[in-house]
């Protein structure tokens, strides 16, 4: 390769291969490729790779779509049509009821407290919460046992199992909406696991276990692999907000939970 032009770099070649160059630069690139057999060979190999990948998987898009997938759209369209047919008032009443339910707990604030060394109980709490998150966040078919659409049933059931009146907080300000909840085991009996999701499909959980602490604890933080958790305990219950979202986002959500749950 005795040429005065510098050999093409991978980055240049990738950009060219992706068809991302304006026409005049692409033409210049083509000219350089003539003098660079190594780059030409690599490019030809990549084009073979692309062709093989398209041959392998391209036909999937031509297959008839399975009914279980089209059914999701069909049900949603039917739901929308029913929604439009229903008098508007019904929806507003529902929203008002939700606001009222969330209003208790407003007006209280988070007071920074001394950071304490986590007790053994608190560490168990964090590790249980992280394990519960990791078990159910990957669940495709049944991420929750009772969905958020059955809010009343969810609240009654969870409150009964934990022996305390509990309501899932609202994280809409952070872009997360409640999917629903399930009962999971904890060191002290049944615990509640609420799952939330943002429009991008990122999930977080709020774990509430029937284990209190005196004195109440400040926020504590635990991490296991990519999964992070903010947790704290009040007189009757322990809480953990867990997820793989950025830590600051998770902290804001935990603060929102604290404000609403106290």
């Amino acid at each position: 390769m005795m040429t005065e032009k510098p050999a093409l770099t991978e980055a240049e070649l990738l950009t060219y291969a992706a068809g991302a160059l304006p026409p005049e630069e692409a033409a210049a690139m083509k000219a350089r490729l003539v003098d660079d057999p190594a780059a030409s060979a690599t490019l030809a190999e990549w084009q073979l790779q692309d062709a093989a990948i398209r041959d392998l998987y391209g036909p999937v898009a031509e297959e008839p779509v399975p009914d279980r997938l089209t059914a999701i759209i069909r049900r949603a369209k039917a739901g929308d049509a029913a929604e439009q047919a229903r008098p508007k008032q019904g929806r507003f009443a529902l929203i008002a009821a939700t606001c009222a339910a969330l209003a208790f707990g407003a007006g209280t604030g988070w007071f920074a407290r001394d950071l304490a060394t986590p007790s053994a109980g608190a560490q168990t709490l964090a590790s249980n919460a992280i394990r519960a998150y990791e078990t159910f966040v990957v669940e495709v078919a049944h991420p929750v046992e009772v969905s958020a659409s059955e809010a009343e049933h969810l609240n009654t059931w969870m409150s009964k199992r934990l022996g305390h009146e509990i309501r899932p907080p609202d994280f809409a300000a952070a872009g997360f909406s409640l999917m629903g909840g399930r009962i999971v085991p904890s060191a002290e009996g049944a615990a509640a696991l609420y799952m939330y999701e943002d429009p991008q499909g990122q999930r977080i959980t709020l774990y509430i276990a029937p284990e209190g602490a005196s004195p109440e604890t400040a926020f504590q933080f635990a991490q296991q692999g990519e999964t992070q958790s903010f947790y704290w305990m009040d007189r009757d219950l322990s809480y953990a907000v867990t997820g793989t979202v950025p830590r600051e986002m998770l902290r804001q959500i935990a603060l929102a939970a604290y404000d609403q749950l106290i």
């Binding site: 990948i53 392998l56 998987y57 391209g58 999937v60 898009a61 031509e62 297959e63 779509v65 399975p66 279980r68 997938l69 089209t70 999701i72 495709v140 078919a141 499909g201």
Partner: peptide, 25 residues
């Protein structure tokens, strides 16, 4: 849906698991 199925199939290979992923999405 067709493009999602194609990408999911190529990621996961297994047809049913790929469609599970698309269904979830």
């Amino acid at each position: 849906i067709p493009a999602l199925r194609r990408y999911a199939r190529a990621l996961m290979r297994d047809r049913d698991r790929a469609d599970d992923l698309v269904q979830d999405c």
